[in-house]
Design a protein around this nucleic acid. Structure first.
Lengths: 200, 200
DNA sequence: CGTGCATTTTACCGATTGGTCAAATCATTG
DNA sequence: CAATGATTTGACCAATCGGTAAAATGCACG
């Protein structure tokens, strides 16, 4: 039996509401009543579509991880190293701009010790990072990127791009601008260009 | 009436326990029972020393903000610009290394929209940042630092140093090392050196 | 129409939440 | 020692937590 219109609509509404609430208060801080209210449904109706609070959270985390790692997968080994890296930074920043709630959901999960991320997910993450790090190491060895630690470089991209989404409130308070992401792209491009551009 | 030995001991134990729990679960996710258990006191005994759950949280946030901004205050306008900036990065990273719970507490507060940080605190923060940014701008104008956006540069220091504390689990999973902070200092020094060192 | 299934609601459950209160205990000082 | 204030505890509260059961409703289709 395929999913009916009403099913997909409500499931989507619940996931969207869950994203809103979980990303703001974390798993433990979020309540089903809040999520139900945000979704415009009653609490028992929520639990008609998802077996438990954790099931909603798990579904969100799963669909997140895939999208989150996509920019890393899109680095082209055959491309021009510096361009590939700068494009990677821009793609990751775009993700932070377009999906700040997903970013905060992930941040909350990590902050609380990643209790809902199992070993499979963790090793997938590590394999992907190790692959990209190996690629960067090759580029460095060929002299097509400046000398850097590949793993720390990837971590830096994550730290900086994610910061603009996760610390939105802080960024706005300190920068006093309506669109902090605009200046961010120029700044981050400059930063990683100077870090990675091979010496003359 | 001065604070007795037993008072200061229990107050300290409560604040330490609160830091542990709040930093892991956020304000809403933390419970007084958890904090009481961690502090080795009964829940009513907690509330003998602090009026409410929020009072504990507020006390923690207050003592945190001061320590957190100290490295920024310690930048010496009379010093050598690049050295001052790199020292600032190292001081901030040391804070992340030595006080990861404070860092996570702050991150949790910002993630949930900073509901407990009032206007006074926010403007203090902004004034300090604006002051440091003005100093950096001067140094850039004098040609003693490379062309950068001062505000975004400060934000980058925060993002990178804080990341190593807040995302400890992720950092360890990806880097596979016991002491991720060791490599971090070398990497961040290199990164900010290349970003800020004035061109030849 | 009416039958059957999907959907929603009302009422409720035991456990836990932040917090209170008065009684009990402890420690200090005269 | 006695007394006095500081500290701690157990019992308890209303509200809220995640979740359940069953009845009520909506809806598609013969």
């Amino acid at each position: 039996m395929p999913e009916t219109r009403i099913q997909s609509r409500n499931r989507a509404a619940i996931l969207d509401a869950g994203l809103e609430i979980f990303s703001r208060y974390g798993f433990r801080g979020a309540t089903l009543d809040q999520i139900a209210g945000e979704a415009g449904l009653s609490k028992p109706n929520l639990l008609y579509y998802f077996q438990s609070k954790e099931a909603i959270h798990r579904a969100l985390l799963l669909q997140l991880m895939d999208a989150w790692l996509e920019p890393l997968r899109d680095i082209d080994p055959a491309g021009e190293p510096l361009d590939e890296m700068l494009d990677y930074v821009r793609r990751k920043l775009a993700l932070s701009r377009d999906y700040p709630r997903e970013s905060r959901l992930f941040a909350n999960e990590i902050l609380s010790g990643a209790p809902h991320i199992d070993d499979t997910l963790a090793s997938t993450l590590r394999d992907l990072v190790d692959g990209a790090a190996a690629l960067i190491a090759d580029w460095v060895a060929e002299g097509r990127l400046a000398q850097v630690d590949p793993h720390h470089t990837i971590m830096s991209v994550w730290a900086l791009t994610q910061h603009y989404a996760d610390f939105d409130v802080q960024v706005r308070a300190v920068l006093d601008t309506d669109d902090p992401l605009r200046g961010a792209e120029a700044h981050l491009t400059q930063l990683f260009d100077r870090l990675l551009r091979p010496g003359a």
